[in-house]
Design a protein around this nucleic acid. Structure first.
Length: 578
DNA sequence: ACGCTCGCATCAGGTGGGAAACGG
DNA sequence: CCGTTTCCCACCTGATGCGAGCGT
């Protein structure tokens, strides 16, 4: 990869570097509106296989109750192909799968990108995802997976994003720039291995409102301010590079920083300028370019953008929602200093504890032989969540026993016994069986041989279900030393054709009783564990005026209602009551 | 002697909290 | 006055360099 940076080594396309506000940047987009016919075939071919019946929809609660208003983009995201290919609108009462089930004859929509580009409007303020018409498009039924043609994009840390999204993600912006957490991380398949691509992330306004945190809720408050100067895109430092390179490892944007400093001149290529109290939607863009990195006019139709709605966030200069703060503290290793002393929660020694220590205290970086397996472990396994402290005595015991049951459950763990027994991290991960509720992970573990070593520069972020590779971008680091593993995507990487493997995934999911991703399993459980957060002393965090975080985030009520109604966590409603 | 591994110290940089400053 | 932003702090992680120890 050569460590080329957008503004140094590469002859990066002028279109890529121009300020997006420039109306002519994407003036070639007339081509974008010309759908690829083969894609249509592919799409409907997939559709046959992925369409979920109404019954399935009804019986498949949204695994990630993403609370989009009805007109919002799909629960799993929009694959914003350049050729005006969009998801079908959600089916009523079918919050999750329906969105993934393209309905032939559904109202035709226009691609946000296409519209913006062709109209010459500011592509970073105009395309409110919900407001954009969409054409029906095959959308993967797998959480965090987007498919457009042969290209498949997997949001690696989808589970973590979903957890934050439930509470309305907030991202701190500072003058010097603040990293995103969670950060954007993708696995890509289906690119032409020999073709060259630029990959970048831009951040667009998610709606046209100014937001304010009031009474424990995010409420709209006036209109968003107009277009704002400053960089709104972050080009992956590996760009340009071959499809083979992009598919070889995880593509992470961990160094992407958010700032509110419009005049930021330093590290401008690493910073995206945003406005506080506005809601934004990151978007992954893949542009096929010539070998030297310049954009080939004849290739512009191969530009594709992918939106994962769960990555939506509100930019803030200080956290507003205590739920978000706590999630950040619990998941971000750099915020470890703000975690409570979980040991004090037990008052007994490590050996007596029924629940495991946070992974960081158990040498959690020593993993399954191969980080390529680690990504399959739920983020909650990997991160430093002090799980045990989330439960009082009874629940702790309960979970511990569930853990034991779960380890022996072949539907849950497909790791070879040796691997199961050999890693603290895995043990930790399996401690809460609910966290295994990700079929993605489940299948991925099923008998995949270790593959090539891949550098993982982000050891402490290995929580992502699919994290792998160079999480900090182009930089290889010491994590590489103990990262010997297979490719996270190998098991579904048919570069030549995405379909068969997706089908395999789908079929596999039907084989198992643990079709967890059809249920609000992982996120729900993750949240139910989170719920216990607030049973512990809240002295270090702001206290929400609401008794439950459920009420804090209006957009998320559906999903959270689910939890409450199911009484999955009796302590849930006791948050903030201290 | 050489190469390798490991542990330790140091440094840079990231984190949220909280108080102060700012601004409408 | 109040909401928002900025700055500083203590704490943490990760990268790096160095030296000790060990095996060849």
């Amino acid at each position: 990869m050569g460590g080329s940076t957008p503004n140094s080594g590469s002859n990066f396309s002028i279109n890529m570097l121009n300020q997006p506000e420039s109306s002519e940047n994407f003036s070639k987009e007339t081509d974008r509106n010309k759908p690829m016919q083969d894609f249509q075939e592919l799409r409907y071919g997939m559709q046959d296989r992925f369409y979920l019946t109404g019954e399935q929809c009804q019986s498949s609660p949204d695994p990630v109750p993403l609370p989009y208003p009805s007109q919002h983009i799909s629960a799993t995201g929009i694959a914003v192909g350049n050729a005006s290919r969009y998801l079908s609108p959600p089916l009523p009462n079918c919050p999750y799968p329906a969105n993934r089930a393209p309905v032939p004859g559904a109202p035709s929509y226009t691609a946000p990108g296409a519209e913006v580009y062709s109209a010459g409007a500011d592509p970073f303020s105009a395309p409110y995802p919900h407001s954009f018409p969409r054409t029906s498009l095959y959308n993967s039924s797998l959480p965090g997976l987007q498919v457009s043609g042969k290209v498949q994009i997997l949001l690696c840390n989808y589970q973590l994003w979903a957890k934050f999204h439930k509470h309305q993600t907030e991202m701190i912006i500072t003058k010097q720039g603040r990293r995103m957490f969670p950060f954007l991380s993708f696995n890509i398949t289906g690119l032409d291995p020999s073709a060259h691509y630029n990959i970048y992330v831009d951040v667009i306004l998610a709606d046209q409102h100014h937001w304010r945190y009031q009474g424990g809720k995010w409420v709209q408050c006036g209109k968003a301010e107009g277009t704002m100067q400053g960089n709104r895109m972050y080009v992956h430092p590996d760009s340009p590079n071959t499809g083979a390179h992009w598919m070889r490892q995880e593509i992470s944007f961990g160094k992407l920083k958010l700032t509110n400093n419009k005049g930021a001149s330093n590290n401008v290529t690493q910073m995206i300028v945003l406005q506080s109290l506005h809601k934004y939607q990151p978007r992954l863009n893949i542009v096929e370019v010539k070998e030297d990195g310049t954009e080939d006019p004849y290739l512009t139709t191969k530009t594709q953008a992918f939106i994962f709605p769960e990555t939506q966030f509100i930019a803030v200069t200080a956290y507003q929602n205590a739920d978000i703060t706590q999630l950040k503290i619990d998941h971000n290793p750099f915020a470890k200093g703000f975690r409570d002393n979980f040991d004090s929660m037990y008052g007994n020694s490590e050996g007596d504890r029924l629940t495991p220590s946070p992974p960081d205290q158990q040498n959690c970086q020593q993993l399954v032989p191969g980080t390529r397996y680690q990504p399959f472990l739920h983020d909650q396994y990997m991160n430093a969540l002090p799980q045990g402290r989330y439960y009082n005595g009874d629940r702790t015991v309960s979970h511990a026993s569930k853990h034991r049951d779960d380890i022996t459950n072949p539907h849950r763990w497909f790791m070879p016994p040796v691997q199961q027994a050999s890693t603290n991290r895995l043990d930790f991960g399996s401690y809460d069986p609910e966290y295994t509720g990700n079929a993605f992970m489940t299948y991925s573990m099923k008998g995949f041989p270790p593959l090539q070593a891949t550098p993982h520069a982000l050891g402490y972020y290995q929580e992502h279900p699919f994290s792998s590779g160079n999480a900090w971008g182009a930089r290889g680091t010491s994590q590489y030393h103990h990262s010997k593993a297979g490719s996270a995507l190998t098991w579904y990487r048919p570069v030549a054709d995405a379909r068969p493997t997706l089908i395999n995934l789908e079929e596999k999911s039907k084989e198992t009783e643990d079709s967890s991703w059809l249920e609000p399993h992982s996120v729900k459980s993750a949240d139910s564990s989170d719920s216990g957060l607030y049973e512990i002393d809240c002295k270090r965090r702001k206290v929400s005026p609401y008794t439950s975080s459920t009420e804090n985030s209006p957009p998320n009520q559906n999903g959270e209602k689910y939890e409450k109604e199911n009484g999955s966590d009796t302590g849930y409603c006791s948050f903030y009551t201290n």
